[in-house]
Computed example of a mutant assay.
Amino acid sequence: MIENEFIPDLKLSSIPVGVVSWSAPSNIALVKYWGKKENQIPENQSISFTLDTCKTITKLYFSKRDTSDENYSFEILLDGENKPDFKPKINTFFNRIEAYLPFLKSYHFKIETSNTFPHSSGIASSASGMSALALCLMSVEKLMNPEMSQEYFNKKASFLARLGSGSASRSIEGDLIVWGKHNAIEGSSDLFGIKYPYEVHDNFKNYNDTILLVDKGEKQVSSTVGHNLMHSHPFAKTRFKQAEENITKLKAILKSGDLEAFIALIESEALTLHAMMMTSMPYFILMKPNTLEIINKIWSFRKETGLHISFTLDAGANVHVLYPENETEEIYNFIKTELVAYCQNGHYICDQIGFGAQKL
């Protein structure tokens, strides 16, 4: 089994105390992952742009415990405040990864984390948060095993991050990441994300993502609940097949530079994701009226100008406005004058394609 290669095959040296820190980006899926099997295995493949500005910064302090027991010892702070309500999720994560990081119960951990964007508002804070924590834990293992290669480090970090949040597997590297075994993508795996290994046209380099914060509040339905609703969804099998076919189509689009085909595919993917939510049982709608207003404005502006502005959505109300760098001036002016009015308190984030996590 491939998982076994992530279990340390040598005795790790013991480090008494230390601190490591990483920033890890969020990501925005172009072909969406929605639905998962046991052990955080995706029902369908996905591909994402890694973001740059939207990220989680995590500092991990670790100290050897005098005696280890059956419980993990850790505390977690978000923006300097204790977050005991985060502890069950971290405890579940540690349970899932202990076989691969056998030192977890031997240390006390202090996890200090902060986001550059609103938490739980559909900008994949779990992706950046869990990838940042996984990278910190991998840095601890690397201190114990300095011979570890960078390739193995990244692959295992993605593998571990996936066990905390599926989309976190796509937040280790950049700029395009594929997660899920796909016959047309060499090296792809359900267990971890990989850098997209094929030619990408200049049209898709330095792409911009302006995130319009329509609703900065907590999501009505957690992603975990949404994913689980795909188990009994009447359209699930058709959706999974559609995603697989769209990855194949996107591979050709990324090579050719066909912006019109790119726009049609990613907007269809965004609306399909929300269609799955609206047709599950129970059903739910995460888009807000202003989400639809923004989408219609984008469609009208694109038709009038011929500019390559497009949108995608995550599992929330916020809108990711995507556009090539060489059209920034006109499109950004349109965003400021026509779209920002639909944002909560006029708030939005200017972001662009990023190239992965950074050790701090």
Rank of each mutant, 00 (worst) to 15 (best):
I90H: 02
F117W: 05
A127D: 07
N183M: 02
C136E: 09
I97M: 06
N91L: 08
A184N: 10
V178H: 03
E112A: 03
A132C: 05
S128Q: 03
I97C: 02
R96Y: 11
I123S: 07
S131Q: 10
I76Q: 01
L133G: 08
S126H: 05
M148C: 11
L101H: 02
H182Q: 15
A184E: 15
L78W: 08
N91C: 09
W179R: 05
L135M: 13
A161R: 00
G164Q: 08
S139C: 10
R170W: 09
T113I: 05
I172L: 06
K105E: 09
S114A: 13
Y152M: 09
T113L: 01
A132V: 03
V140R: 00
P146G: 06
M144Q: 13
A99R: 11
Y100E: 02
H119L: 14
S128H: 01
S106L: 07
P118V: 07
Y72P: 03
P146V: 04
E173Q: 11
E147H: 11
S167K: 00
P88M: 03
I76Y: 01
N154I: 05
F159T: 06
L176A: 05
N91F: 13
D85Y: 04
G164V: 08
L101M: 06
F103Y: 15
N115Q: 13
G180Q: 04
V140S: 03
C136G: 08
F74G: 07
S120W: 03
A132M: 04
G174M: 07
L78A: 14
A124R: 01
P118T: 03
N145S: 15
L143M: 15
D175K: 00
I76C: 10
E141Q: 13
D85E: 15
T92S: 14
A99Q: 14
H182F: 06
L160T: 10
P102R: 02
F153E: 12
K89V: 13
F159P: 08
G166S: 05
M138Y: 05
N95Q: 10
S131K: 03
W179L: 06
H119Q: 12
Y107K: 00
N115W: 11
G129D: 02
N154C: 13
V178E: 04
E112K: 01
F94C: 05
K89Y: 15
L176T: 00
L101D: 02
L163I: 04
E173V: 11
K105G: 07
E98N: 12
P102I: 00
L101I: 09
S139N: 11
K156N: 12
A127H: 04
I123V: 14
N95T: 09
S125E: 07
I97V: 13
R162P: 14
L133I: 15
Y107T: 04
T116L: 05
L163W: 02
K156Y: 10
I177L: 04
P102V: 01
K110Y: 12
S126G: 06
K142T: 13
W179G: 01
K155Q: 12
Y107R: 04
S73A: 14
Y152P: 06
L78Q: 14
E112D: 15
A184G: 12
I111M: 02
S126T: 06
M130E: 06
I123E: 10
Q150C: 04
A99K: 14
K110I: 15
I172E: 08
E112S: 10
S73I: 00
H108G: 11
S165I: 00
L176Y: 14
T113Q: 03
A157T: 11
L133V: 15
A134V: 08
I111W: 05
F109W: 08
N82D: 14
S149E: 12
N154L: 08
D85G: 00
F94M: 06
S106P: 02
